[in-house]
Design a protein around this nucleic acid. Sequence first.
DNA 1: ACCGCGATGCACT
DNA 2: GTGCATCGCGGTG
Length: 200
Amino acid sequence: MALPRRLSRDFFARSVHEVAPELIGATLLVDGVGGRIVEVEAYDQDDPASHGYNGRTARNASMFGPAGHAYVYRSYGIHWCLNLVCAEAGRAEAVLVRALEPTHGLDAMRARRGTPGVRQLCAGPGRLCQALAVTRDHDGLPLDEPPFELYARESEPQIASGPRVGITKAADLAWRYCLAGSPFLSRPLRLSASPVRRRG
DNA sequence: ACCGCGATGCACT
DNA sequence: GTGCATCGCGGTG
């Protein structure tokens, strides 16, 4: 078996629409704590729902590059959300990391999150940042240096896509990518024609 | 299972 | 003042 391959900055220096689905199954660690990425969303320059849509500000500066760095912002005054910056400098594209399947540092995550079930540890962008202790201090840091570790997936997962969560603008775009069937998603993927399900 | 709401920072076509 | 790329809790079927 091969050693896991680290994702380079070049990996991110492409369209966010290529990068986002390829991140499903990758492993993200911060100071050794984290897990497998099971849910992300893409945000690009021409997207009215994106923080970069109305141009560069002090808050979103790191979203404008360079690629392969973190963009961390505060959400609803309470939570932190982590993005992985893509594309060339000067263009604002980033992948919002929305959920992990916890694999490393479960005890640290539980201590930070207040002992919820494993499925709730990193199920959502705010929860994930709390579990990994990501804050504004991480904004702009390179993803290929400590405290970050990012490893490519070792096999091609089954990926499902659908509309993004919690936005009002451009809500029809299917730019949310999930590991199909994962129990660690922030919420179930909304499908175009989902069958009625009973428990079981 | 759903729905409503409060907490709280900060940018602002 | 308004509107969020959210979460957890408490109320109601």
